[in-house]
Amino acid sequence: MSREGREAEPREEPEPRRRMAERFTRAVGREGRESREGERPRPRREVVTSPRTTAARHPRYPATREIDEQTRLGEVYMRSLVRTQFRLALFVCTVLGCVAGGLPLLFMLVPELGSARLLGVPVPWALLAGLVYPGFVAGAWLYVRQAERNERHFAELVDRPGGRDERCSAGPVDRPGGRDPDAGAGPVADPVAESGSDRAGGR
């Protein structure tokens, strides 16, 4: 991910890094004023002109914006989230499928289970009329825990640009979808597009 973040910088231009950063900051400031009219004014974005090592580790601006603008990097973030959650869901469904699909087979292939007793009742009854329910609840609980953890990781990943972000400190964010869909496509999008990170579709 950090590699793409670096590519977002127009490195091929011979302009000194300092001036680049100033231009970038101006662009962000302008975008912040222009496209968010009528909303709470956001503080100006600061770009820290740090040594190369730090720059390599963090993208230049928040990944949330990459997602909003549907850049290729944004798509990578989204696909990673969807894939992680889907894999988790598929895992739970597979376990469930093995239990639900396997028990009838087991009962058919091992008829002696019917005469065996568990908790004083025949095994099929103990399983289907009792034990399966706590099993469901346990599985659901584990799933919820892991799914929330995945989302937390994703939020930390995309909402922590360059170590400092006004969005983070701004507390609870806007209502979902409460923004103009095209607000993100301000002037600041252009340097990114010029440097080769194309827009991956969009409206």
Partner: peptide, 15 residues
């Protein structure tokens, strides 16, 4: 984006 991202993130989710 709308379906899968947690609501705590400030993202464009369409209108």
């Amino acid at each position: 984006v709308r379906l899968h991202t947690p609501e705590t993130l400030n993202l464009d989710r369409g209108d």
